[in-house]
Nucleic acid binder design. Structure first.
Lengths: 194, 194
DNA sequence: CCTACCGATCGGTAGG
DNA sequence: CCTACCGATCGGTAGG
């Protein structure tokens, strides 16, 4: 692992776990896998964390919080719905780009949370999705957007966004902001030439 | 479980496993979970199948085959790229709608395949994605589509399509074909009014 | 952060 | 399809 030198041991542990959870999945990652990657014994992990699930909890809820924060900034503006949607997409992608691994875990591994954490995570997520949906609905009412099925539209957006950590190459040419603009262009203007 | 009466015991077993793999994930689903759901002992499963992974293999490769078949039909036409893209989307969604659970497993659990199955699965998948990409590239060259980033375009399409099993309600109002048309409309024409 | 260890559960087999 | 069982591995604890 590279770039973990400045982090506390606990932060290193969570970052490393996120990597493993992303690659192998939460259930298929053992505490011994994690310990081996860090170069310590499995039992030693428990002086930093209380349980395996605690790691998943911090990853999921910290990301949920960052996504919510980013969208709230956009909501507190007076831009058109078209611009709000674009800024919402840009914000989401920038949060994701800063935490690509944690974002992938947020998207794919949250189902392994136990109750009551799972329930409150799903509430946060549906709330986030509904806020994007409100922007789309607003755009339809204002005449900016076509009268599409808003559930389909928002789920298309949400799945496109959240699958990005699986294929986006942060060392590649295209920058997160540029990527966000292109995705917004595609969804707002379509592929077709005018 | 409903509607499994006409299937062979092995087919029932695979369908039931798909449901559990979708809900809990492959790694978190134990053979005892599967046996309990079917109302038999875990050891009895092995008179129908060789291993847990064999179930995952049949699910993943059978779906890959159906998706490939559906896209090949579209490729063997002389339609415009716009129409090919639309028909490709419709085909994918119809295959998925017929096997919603297996499709979710295909999308999210394939990483638990061991070698050499994982490698050949990923080859099938990248081949499928590249065929969609070729349609988009063709449309750009012909002037039907704007000069977008084709990797972004095809991954947006692919992730939208494959996340559908997680939110699409087959008992709801909207039919798979109608859904496919609306998704195609969105991606091709965009959200924006003209 | 380590050694030593716990009970529970895992995928799977033998033999009927 | 069952009983009986296997060795391996799981998340986690006690005590230092």
């Amino acid at each position: 692992m590279i770039g973990l030198e400045n982090l506390s041991r606990k932060e290193q542990l969570i970052k490393t776990a996120a990597q493993l959870f992303k690659e192998k999945g939460y259930a298929a990652t053992s505490m011994r896998d994690l310990a081996n990657t860090l170069g310590i014994e499995a039992a030693s992990l428990y002086s930093h964390i209380k349980s395996k699930e605690e790691i998943l909890q911090s990853l999921c809820f910290e990301m949920a919080d960052k996504f919510r924060e980013s969208l709230e900034e956009v909501e507190n503006t007076n831009f058109s719905y078209t611009k709000k949607l674009r800024l919402g997409i840009l914000g989401h992608i920038q949060v994701m780009a800063r935490e690509l691994t944690a974002s992938a875990v947020f998207m794919n591994e949250h189902r392994h949370l136990s109750q009551p954490y799972l329930r409150s995570f799903l509430l946060l997520r549906i709330n986030y999705i509904n806020r994007f949906k409100k922007i789309i609905e607003g755009g339809i009412k204002s005449g900016e957007f076509k009268n599409v099925d808003t559930k389909l539209a928002v789920m298309t957006l949400f799945s496109s966004l959240n699958w990005m950590p699986h294929w986006y190459d942060p060392s590649g040419i295209i920058e997160p902001i540029e990527l966000g603009h292109q995705l917004a262009d595609m969804l707002i203007d379509g592929l077709q030439t005018k």
